[in-house]
Design a binder for these strands. Sequence first.
DNA 1: AAATATAGACCGACAGTCAGTCGGTTGGTA
DNA 2: TACCAACCGACTGACTGTCGGTCTATATTT
Lengths: 211, 211
Amino acid sequence: MRTVKDAKERRDEILDAADELFSQKGFDKTSTNEILEKIGIARGTLYYHFKSKEDIMDALIKRYEKVLFENAEKIAKDKSIPVYERIVKVVKALNISEQGNGQIIDHMHKPQNALMHQKTQATIIKRLTPLLTGIIEEGIEKGLFQTPFPYECMEMAIIYASTIFDSDMIVLSNEQRKERMQAFIYNIGRMLMIEEEGASYLKQIFERKEV
Amino acid sequence: MRTVKDAKERRDEILDAADELFSQKGFDKTSTNEILEKIGIARGTLYYHFKSKEDIMDALIKRYEKVLFENAEKIAKDKSIPVYERIVKVVKALNISEQGNGQIIDHMHKPQNALMHQKTQATIIKRLTPLLTGIIEEGIEKGLFQTPFPYECMEMAIIYASTIFDSDMIVLSNEQRKERMQAFIYNIGRMLMIEEEGASYLKQIFERKEV
DNA sequence: AAATATAGACCGACAGTCAGTCGGTTGGTA
DNA sequence: TACCAACCGACTGACTGTCGGTCTATATTT
């Protein structure tokens, strides 16, 4: 009853199982036993591939990070796409959950679990901020925006959005959500000194999202 | 060897011990055993006063919330203090750790622990935002600021500041810290359309803080 | 082609820790 | 003396991580 597999294959198998369980029940309330029973391996096998339960979480986050940001990075660097459109596309690349393989991450930003959420948010801030900043700087050159602090503006926008819109820390009704989104766009507009057309473009796009 | 105390007294005793241990080692890595050994009570006693370990954490947060915000609220409502000065004082009331009794909270915003941090941040957002919004609205009436979204501005400022300045999620050198602070003041200034004098006043104050 | 060696993958019993429970006890007080 | 809030500590069950040992696929030798 023993099946031997390539380390990589086993690792992925474990990560798949962990992903599903963590997103269902949260990290704390998922036991390592559940993970290994789900794929029919022994305790020692799990700890042969990962040094701790938290290590599994870290690997899981890295796996998502890789997939999502490789895609987002491609878009961000594609100068053939107009600035405003590119911003929208980059953000969408990270939010949307239709990544081919099947069910993927909403839970990347909405884990029932605090530590996982914290770690995820930290990587989003670290990786997304420079991407958007690049685009904004391009926009500045083109006279679309005007600010001495593009990086910090984006940092602030990302932190705010990921706390308010993508986590369950503050619970909002759909109505409130919409209001926050309007105010958010407006405020970013002020920080970047966006001209009228650009602002209303973004407004249209983002107010549609998530009913 | 049995000492009977008023429930309130015992509760506080337990909270004091938990406070010290949580802030030293973090919530997860503090065992309930350590707490009860520290004050010399039995396991059952602890669970007579609190229904779970997390319940202790919640009570601890509430205790801080009460002390800190009662003070902050008083300041916020004192219309004899000029608007700018009042903003500064309210913020200071929450940050500074000289609350009479001895050593208090830095760890309110800087716990090594994700869940505690998340809960703390949630209460800060919920309670501080309306306080500051009130002051800002007064400033708007007086023509100091101008924005259709004072609440959302403050929410954004608070979320950003508590993530960047008061948590160890993003690690900053003192130099970087200073830069962020400058940019932060500048950005808030734009969102609120602060006039020149007000902006430079805030700049002076907040750039001094925390070396 | 058969025998042997090697190492990477796997196993599962076990140790140790911890949160929470429960039946029973004690001391203050009415 | 009766009551009850406060207290006790042994116990349970669940969980993470460890360790010595085993298996199997592949490489190496004969």
